[in-house]
Amino acid sequence: MAGITRTAEAVWEGTGKEGSGTLTTPSAILSGTRYSFAQRFENAPGTNPEELIAAAHAGCFAMALSFGLSKEGFKPKQLAAKAAVTVEPKDGGFAITSSALTLHAEVPGIDREKFATIVEAAKSGCPVSKVLNAKVTLEWTLA
């Protein structure tokens, strides 16, 4: 498989605190989606970069785990993954310092030891985990 490039566009108007911006993707999933300081740091309604990274990380991890399980002959019934991305002040600016993954998995016929091996490989092997310059943790339950 050849490499894939995905794109997104951000347009910002105004100052950092008082301004606002829009995010747009070719798929139109984001189409002029607004974001601002208040949405990023004050929990105002709307999206922000860290929320989008969390969605990307949870989705990437769940897909990587599904592929890993399938490769070992297991068919997951459901993989419910969440990511909590933390941004903190660092070195005079801000940095994403961690992404905490949580998972509730329903995988018929797998034992805990085998699942632990596959889930850890998915955590470290998922492309979003690889790109994050942050601590990635994982807690999981298996039903």
Results as ranks from 00 to 15, higher is better:
K77E: 15
A81H: 13
E72T: 11
E51G: 06
A38Y: 01
E13F: 00
I118N: 01
L65I: 10
G32L: 08
R6G: 11
A28D: 14
G92E: 05
F41S: 10
S20L: 03
L142D: 10
A64S: 10
K71V: 15
I96W: 00
A143E: 10
L103S: 06
E9F: 08
G68R: 11
A105I: 13
K130N: 04
G109C: 04
L65Y: 02
S31G: 04
A81S: 15
A121V: 14
F67I: 14
A134P: 07
A8C: 03
T24A: 03
L23R: 02
G21T: 01
E51L: 12
D91A: 14
R40V: 00
G109H: 05
S70D: 12
E139G: 09
I29Y: 11
I118Y: 02
F94D: 04
E120D: 15
G125K: 12
A105M: 10
T86A: 11
A105H: 08
L23W: 07
F74K: 04
T102P: 10
G93K: 02
F67C: 06
L132D: 03
F37V: 03
S99W: 11
K114S: 10
I29M: 13
Q78R: 14
T137Q: 01
A116E: 13
T7I: 11
I4W: 09
A80F: 07
L69E: 08
A95N: 00
G59A: 14
A105Y: 06
E120N: 15
A64F: 04
P49D: 01
A10M: 07
C60W: 11
G59T: 15
F37S: 01
R112Y: 06
H104R: 11
T33S: 12
T5M: 13
T24N: 00
G19Y: 07
E120Y: 09
S129D: 07
K17C: 03
D91M: 05
L138T: 11
T15Y: 04
G125A: 12
G125V: 13
L69P: 06
N43V: 00
G73P: 12
Q39S: 15
L52S: 04
L138W: 14
K82I: 02
G14K: 04
V119E: 06
A64M: 13
G32K: 09
V107F: 01
T24G: 00
C126D: 08
V87A: 13
V85Q: 02
A58H: 04
I53F: 11
E120C: 10
M1T: 10
F61I: 02
E51Y: 03
I110M: 00
H104P: 09
F67W: 11
G92M: 07
S31E: 14
L65E: 05
D111A: 13
L23Q: 05
S99K: 11
L132M: 09
Q78A: 15
L142T: 09
A62Y: 02
R34L: 03
L138S: 08
L23A: 13
T137V: 08
E106L: 06
E50D: 02
